[in-house]
């Protein structure tokens, strides 16, 4: 299992990286931690004529707070978030999510931006970022733009980046001390991808209420607005309502799939409303 030959570039600045992307005319890909892209290149499930390694772009590795939101650089690693580098503003949620992504040796390389752009339907950050109301900061040939996480997440292995664009950071609100969250995942062993993921966040101070479910066969993350409305109203959420909401989104769930997704959602909602 070896990757086909490719041209390797290691730009020293964001502008250089964007220029290399543009020059690649759709055949160049950004290499962040490579923990998904490199195995997929080896297995010939992904292809690239040019890899643009952003490991030298220190500006993309920073965490900073401004105007009540926290900006996490795209190449901040899962391990850094597990260790709470830059401070915990989410009552432990990011630390909790990061700690259960693959293994420490993978977390030392893998990045939050890489995970979001790769858009594996079973990945953790797309679900967690949507649940926290994150926006994606994007740089491209026409300048910079922002997209909220729902607009960014298109489909399985597909995000809203246009040709020549790259993710530079995610921006997310901090949670108030009164906020509650729950993150539930069904997986066969520690470090394995989740078969079902549910994330619920309720911040009574900011009014943020999010119920997000994802992973195969639901596809990428999506909000369940009907369940969010119940939580916002403080109304009990019955198991039947959870199953109706899941069935409305994906009518073809088999009994097992419905069971694990409904269980994850029920546990997460119960934990937050307790």
């Amino acid at each position: 299992m070896k990757a086909p030959a490719f041209t390797f570039l290691r730009p020293a600045s964001l502008d250089e990286a964007l220029a290399a992307l543009a020059a690649g005319e759709g055949e160049a890909r950004i290499l962040a931690g490579g923990q998904s892209l490199l195995p997929m290149l080896n297995l010939r499930m992904a292809a690239a004529e040019t890899l643009i390694d952003i490991g030298g772009l220190t500006e993309l590795g920073e965490i900073a707070e401004a105007d009540g939101r926290v900006r996490i650089g795209a190449r901040v690693t899962h391990a850094a978030l597990e260790d709470g580098v830059g401070g915990d503003r989410w009552n432990g949620m990011l630390v909790f999510v990061a700690r259960d992504i693959a293994y420490r040796a993978v977390r030392n390389r893998g990045t939050i931006g890489g995970s979001l752009c790769h858009a594996d339907p079973a990945a953790d950050w797309p679900v967690a970022m949507m649940a926290l109301g994150a926006t994606m900061q994007i740089a491209g040939p026409d300048g910079r733009r922002e997209l909220d996480s729902e607009a960014f997440s298109l489909d399985v292995f597909s995000c809203a980046l246009e040709e020549g664009e790259m993710l530079t950071a995610v921006s997310l609100p901090r949670l108030s001390p009164a906020a509650r969250w729950s993150y539930r995942k069904m997986r066969k062993k520690a470090g394995a991808f989740g078969e079902a993921i549910a994330a619920v966040v309720h911040d009574p101070e900011s009014g943020l209420v999010r119920v997000v479910a994802g992973s195969s066969p639901l596809g990428g993350p999506a909000r369940h607005a009907d369940l969010e409305a119940s939580i916002a109203a403080g109304a009990p959420v019955e198991d039947a309502a959870i199953r109706r909401s899941l069935a409305a989104r994906e009518p073809d769930l088999d009994r097992y799939e419905m069971q694990i997704h409904a269980t994850c959602l029920r546990r997460a909602i119960t934990e937050v409303m307790r």
Binding site: Q35, D53, N108
Partner: peptide, 19 residues
Amino acid sequence: CTVLLDGVPVRSCITLAAS
């Protein structure tokens, strides 16, 4: 294949030498 890269463990099979 786990080795230390700048003091922390990484998978050397899915890390490019060039990186």
